[in-house]
Each structure stands twice: as structure tokens, then as C-alpha cells.
Amino acid sequence: MIWVDTIVQGILLGGLYALFAAGLSLVFGIMRLVNLAHGDLIVLAAFLILTVVNFLGLSPFVAVLIAAPVMFAIGWALQTYVLNRVLGDDILPPLLVTFGLSVVIQNGLLEGFSADSQKLSAGPIEAASLPLGPITVGVMPLLTLISAVVVIFALNRLFYRTKLGRAFRATSDDAVTAGLMGIRPRNVFAIATGIAMVVATIAALYLGIRANFDPSIGPARLIYAFEAVIIGGLGSLWGTLAGGILIGVAQALGAAVNPEWQILAGHIAFVLVLLIRPRGLFPRAND
């Protein structure tokens, strides 16, 4: 029975990782951009929510509604003024620019908010739990997983059912020909990064409610997100969810054996999956 509990907790944890990874997966799927600053941008969003909560006395769940458009604008501007300039065949410039950005954001937050641990307070819901058959699950972890599923479902709808999504896919396939159709790839990329930042804001909400955060934790979270995206299969959103859950379950199982092995078990699962399936679990056919 304890194993069932462990696996369920792992799946719920995986929901959090999938949420961290969804924006990354979207951006990678559209423009093959690996944003090493994604984790720091999530932490930035968490501080933004915190600021809104502190100044306006709102619940974090409401503060997200104010933070999300701001993060969209940040993402849009980042893509328009910085990242669009370095996209291309050479992978070095985008990697190094986002790496630099990661360091700038991290230390900028350190300067503005100090290294103290912060937390978003959501009230009694944090401690609430539901009996689910023989096991109990926390309401917050459950809400996180549900949010991850909803976010990924919504992104998929956007991707496959809307005019914007059509432009996303066309640009991803062939940016030059997309230009001949009247699509402006740079605008499409800017919107995509904006949307990724909205998703990052939702991830930041759960990051901040479920655990303490400080300016330096971005990269540590990012690494799980990247693992989820890569083992899920590049550019597959549902694959990203599966990848996140796989990492979560591996970590939970590792922790059940020895608490010190939690993180290690996740990394080893990542390596094993890639040794067996180098293109991940659900690779897109035309990559």
C-alpha cells in the first residue's frame, strides 16, 4: 500500500514539474529555442506575485491575474528585443544569451529582494487534504496536477484549433514560407514567448505556495523542467506532462528508499529513458 501512496505522490509532484516545463516545451516546439533562463523567469514571476500580494493584500490566486499580463509583456519584449536577434542555425548565441539572462535575473532579484526565503500564503487550503480510497492526497498537490493538465490541454487547443496555433505550427515548419503567407515569424515568436511567460506565472503560483523560494532556486527547478521536456519528446506537450510525471515518480520512489536519493533518482531516470529512447517518449514525426 505504501508503494501506491508513493507513486501517487510522485505523480502529483510530476504535475508541478510539468507546469514548470510547459512554457519551455511550447517555446522549443515553435522556435527550437532553449531558454536557460526559464527557471529564473518563473522565480521572477513568483516575486511579482508576492509583490502584488503584499501591496494590494490580495490572495495569490487573484494576484496571478495581475502578474500574468505583466509577465506576458516581459516575455514579448524579451523575444522582440533580445532573443529574435540570436535565433538561427548557430545554437551558441541563444544558449549564451539566455545563460547570461539567467545570471542577470538571479542577481537582480537578489539585489531587489535579498536572499531571504519567501513564501506565498494561500490560507487553510495549503494544509487541506482529501481521502482518496486508501490514501490521502493534499489539495494543493492535486490542484497543481489539475492545473498542469488544464494548461497543457489549453495549449494543445491553442496549437491545433486556432488561427494563431496554425501560424505557430507553420512558422515552426518553415519560417520563410510562412513569411510568404503574410505571417511575421518574429511577431509569432514574441507572442509564443509571451504565452510561455503566462504559463510560467501559473507555475510560479504553485512554486510559491507549495515551498519556500529565493532568488537562487531557478536553475534547480529548471533542470527538472528540461528533463521533462526532453524525455517527453521535443515539442510534444502531452509528452512533457508524461515526462514531468515520470521524473516525479522516480523522485518519489528514490526518496522512499533513501531521502538523500530523491533528486538523484530523478536524474537517473532521465538518463535511462534517453539511453533507451534518444528522441524521448513521444517525438514529433517531422523533427
Partner: peptide, 27 residues
């Protein structure tokens, strides 16, 4: 001015209908 490019260059991720519709993207 619109163009039928050499080699057709359809978008592999799009269906036939979506490929046609995308021509009206900015119409």
C-alpha cells in the same frame, strides 16, 4: 502579390484545409 513557391513547400504540421486557410492569414 502571392506566390506558389518552387517545391510547393506545404507545411507538414498542417492539414490540407489548414494549409489552404493559412493563405488567408492576413487577409
Amino acid at each position: 502579390i502571392s506566390m506558389v513557391p518552387e517545391g510547393r513547400r506545404l507545411f507538414p504540421s498542417l492539414t490540407v484545409e489548414e494549409n489552404i486557410l493559412i493563405g488567408a492569414h492576413s487577409r
